[in-house]
Design a protein around this nucleic acid. Structure first.
Length: 503
RNA sequence: GGCCCCAUCGUCUAGCGGCCUAGGACGCUGCCCUCUCAAGGCAGAGAUCACGGGUUCGAAUCCCGUUGGGGCCA
């Protein structure tokens, strides 16, 4: 039975790297008809917040990564320990701070068996050891001075009120071999590993211990996580052995880097999944793009339906080398997905990005939004490309107009332009019904009558109607705007020309 | 510093000993279509497969080393 988990620490938003890890776990579970577990690793008591839990669950929900077991997404939790959250699944609770009793039991078991010991060193002392070791060019590790303390020494220290942590006693011989599903065999000399702290002075276990207990108790079959956890894996594998458990299979995903080859961070652009949502990326595009960061099919296919991803995704085609996050390709892909949207879906998706009163201002809003569908790369482009529909206050940039006039042999003077506008006004005035095909026919007739190229007629009129040199098809745009507004705008441009000429 | 991981066009990648004078996609350039911009179609530039040694009749593909990048210890 395949059981995988995504186990974020709620110390911030869900970033792109975390989302990719979650996605791969999700895809792996769906591909193998397994179970996808979401577990909140909140043992960092100072940095964990319930706002982060909200943000992470919200991001996952937005991306459509539904989990089979874990906290239920209903409103928000009450405490950073997850109290107030409900959970689904038989292996809960899914907040580590609610699982303290489980950890205590195994912590005690390890200590009783002599596989863990109390360490009375202060953080300062440990730091000193590290510096010292580096100076002497030795491996920087805890020197094990509390390993073989006598019973009396221990009593003395505790009598003196020294606080203690629990350290796992790493075997000092042989080596640990990880059979990584992506990297193959990875060997580690045990002697070089340090005795990791598994319980903090507060009594709370550390990440490295808690996840071993949870993965075992939750019967996780495959641990799919980022490469940064690879170095901790040998210690964890030794803990499994010390507890008499069989470790799960491991798969360490490569990192996601920014354009400069360093770990993706804020200076490279957006890192939070929610930022992408706010900028107008579609979850399906994001998902598709992320899937390609470290995974590919034999055909280098790049657009996938979700079901196709389920069918084709597997760990054996995951990339070992790190991937650079390419915003340009994401934009392209998002544009692809926007173009695939139905009219209704596009309008719905655009709503958060449109002016609040857009629907009242323009009853035919959905007709407008679709006009530029093939040009949007992000949904925040929608209001930018459509703004002239929502206001009569847009400005005419004379530089644009002048540029147009330079290129057109028949538009050398403002008078010529005025004449074109007047000609159009009178034509439009009689035009009934004012629909796309009629408008096109009328405008082509004007060009013919005038003996101008069609472009010489269309471009200045597009400018008149929208204030732009580029935009939707003139006929579509005019029809969508309606005769009244079009005539109004023609008149407005004519007036502006007169005024500027007077100056 | 120690340990670990990684290395094919600018980027994501295909390739798993002969099919590779290295394929696809993004981006870039040009052409076509066309009322503009897009979209779409076509064409093109772009990789001595990081470098150096082996192994082999034959290596991008296997082995060793070097360099570079990244991660963990922090």
């Amino acid at each position: 039975m395949i059981r995988v988990r995504f186990a974020p620490s709620p110390t911030g938003f869900l970033h792109v790297g975390g989302a990719r890890t979650a996605l791969f776990n999700w895809l792996f579970a769906r591909h193998h008809k397994g179970t996808f577990v979401l577990r909140i690793e909140d043992t960092d008591e100072v940095r964990s917040t319930h706002e982060s839990v909200d943000a992470i669950l919200g991001s996952m929900a937005w991306l459509g990564l539904d989990w089979d077991e874990g906290p239920i997404l209903e409103g928000s939790g009450v405490g950073s320990d997850g109290s107030g959250w409900k959970s689904k699944g038989n292996y809960g609770p899914y907040f580590q701070m609610q699982r303290l009793e489980h950890y205590k039991k195994y912590l005690r078991q390890l200590e009783d068996a002599g596989r863990a010991y109390r360490c009375y060193c202060t953080p300062e002392e440990v730091e000193m050891m590290r510096v010292q070791a580096q100076l002497e060019k030795r491996p920087p590790k805890y020197d094990g001075r509390c390993r073989e303390l006598t019973e009396k020494e221990r009593r003395d220290k505790e009598g003196a009120g020294r606080k203690w942590t629990l350290r796992f006693k790493m075997p000092q011989e042989e080596k640990t071999v990880i059979h990584d599903l992506i990297r193959g065999e990875v060997h580690f000399e045990n002697i070089l590993q340090q005795d990791l702290i598994i319980q903090k002075t507060s009594g709370v276990p550390t990440y490295n211990f808690a996840c071993v207990v949870d993965d075992h108790q939750m019967e996780i079959s495959h641990v799919i996580r980022a490469e940064e956890h690879l170095s901790n894996t040998p210690a964890q594998v030794c803990m499994y052995a010390a507890l008499g458990w069989t470790p799960p299979q491991f798969a360490h995903l490569s990192m996601i880097l920014g354009a400069d080859g360093t770990k993706l961070s804020k200076r490279h652009g957006a890192t939070s999944v929610l930022e992408y949502k706010n900028q107008g990326y579609l979850p399906q595009a994001m998902r598709n793009y992320l899937a390609l960061l470290g995974w590919a099919t034999e055909t280098s296919q790049d657009i996938f339906e979700v079901q196709e991803l389920f069918d084709k995704f597997d760990l054996d085609r995951c990339q070992k080398n790190p991937a650079t996050f390419d915003f340009a390709k994401l934009d392209w892909m998002n544009g692809m997905y926007i173009r695939k949207l139905s009219q209704a879906d596009l309008v719905e998706a655009s709503k958060p990005f449109l002016p609040k009163d857009a629907a009242q201002q323009t009853p035919n809003l959905s007709e407008l939004v679709v006009l530029e569908q093939e040009k949007y790369r992000v949904l925040s482009d929608v209001p930018k490309m459509l703004d002239f529909f929502f206001t009569e206050e847009f400005v005419y940039h004379w530089d644009d107009l002048n540029g147009l006039m330079v290129k057109s042999p028949h538009l050398k003077t403002h008078e010529a332009l005025e004449r074109l506008i007047e000609f159009t006004e009178s034509k439009f005035f009689k035009l009934e019904p004012f629909v796309e095909t009629q408008i096109e026919a009328a405008l082509r007739e004007i060009a013919k009558d005038l003996g101008w190229k069609t472009a010489e007629v269309f471009h200045p009129l597009r400018f008149a109607v929208s204030g732009r040199l580029q935009g939707p098809s003139l006929f579509h745009m005019a029809a969508a705007l309606g005769k009244g507004r079009v005539v109004l705008r023609l008149a407005r441009l004519k007036k502006s020309i007169k005024e500027s000429a007077a100056k």
